[in-house]
Amino acid sequence: MSEKITAETRTEFGKGAARRIRRDNKVPAVIYGHGNDPVHVTLPGHATMMAIKHGGANALLELDIDGKTQLALTKQVQVDPIKRHLEHIDFVAVVKGERVTIDVPVHLNGEAARETLVVTETATIQLEAEATHIPEYIEVDIEGLEAGTQIHASDLKLPSGSVLLLDPETLVVNITEMQSQEALDAELEEAEAEAGIERDESDNDVDEVGAEDSADESTEASASE
């Protein structure tokens, strides 16, 4: 569903104008698309922030511009890295019934079996969907899945009307057996051996001496108490 926001057309541009807009707790934005000239608008800061948080990466806003309604899909959102307020938004104009290409994030649901490692190999899925029915995310259920399980793009459950544009064989989630520290150390030693890297024995000696010194200091401290 689209979020309704009242927008104001703007005629001032540049960094100075943008700063003045932000001081008034508003956000400068531009709407592109459908062969029309870009439309420059100003949006209410808080209401727009909440609408984008609710709609996610592909938030659809219903903008009221001078009494006319325009559906706008977010394409680029600039956020201040420190203050975290909206700095600028680029929109693409859309109409009801129009199909658009979007990237939708993957959300994992549940926990895999114990002693497994879950790796999200593909974080976003490219889809074609109707502009007013864009999914916020694609949910992937991993509850209880064992090591060796792989979930590909073709295995995803897509919302009705959405079409997968990604290669169906694309690996999305890979569940492997969690390795012990000993196994990791063994792999590291094997990789070093293949690369012709030799460990300096003196380094090992230094580590052992350091460990012994720490133990001695701890013993002396206990005795002094």
Rank of each mutant, 00 (worst) to 15 (best):
M1E: 11
M1C: 04
S2T: 08
S2P: 11
I5A: 04
I5T: 02
I5E: 09
T6C: 10
R10M: 08
E12D: 07
E12G: 03
G14A: 10
K15W: 00
G16S: 12
G16K: 12
R19S: 09
R20Q: 07
I21R: 03
R22E: 01
N25M: 05
N25T: 10
P28Q: 09
P28K: 01
V30P: 06
V30K: 05
G33Q: 10
H34N: 06
N36D: 14
L43T: 08
G45H: 13
G45C: 08
T48K: 09
M49S: 15
M50F: 13
M50R: 10
I52C: 12
G55Y: 00
A57K: 14
A57N: 05
A59D: 00
L61I: 04
L61D: 00
D66H: 07
K68P: 02
L71H: 11
A72W: 01
T74V: 13
K83C: 12
E87P: 14
H88V: 12
H88T: 07
F91K: 06
F91H: 11
V92N: 14
A93M: 15
A93W: 14
V95D: 07
G97Y: 03
R99E: 15
T101V: 11
V104Y: 05
N109P: 00
G110C: 08
E111M: 04
E111I: 02
R114N: 04
T116N: 10
T116H: 10
L117E: 14
T122H: 13
Q126T: 08
E128I: 12
E139A: 05
I142T: 07
E143G: 01
E143R: 04
G144W: 05
Q150M: 01
Q150W: 02
I151Q: 02
I151Y: 13
L156G: 09
L158N: 03
G161V: 09
G161P: 08
S162R: 04
V163K: 07
L166S: 14
V173G: 06
I175W: 04
T176M: 09
T176Y: 06
M178D: 11
S180K: 13
Q181H: 13
E182N: 01
D185K: 06
E187C: 00
L188G: 02
A195S: 05
A195W: 00
D203K: 13
D203H: 10
V206C: 02
E208G: 00
V209M: 10
V209E: 14
A211V: 01
A215R: 13
S218Q: 04
A223W: 04
S224K: 09
S224E: 12
S224H: 08
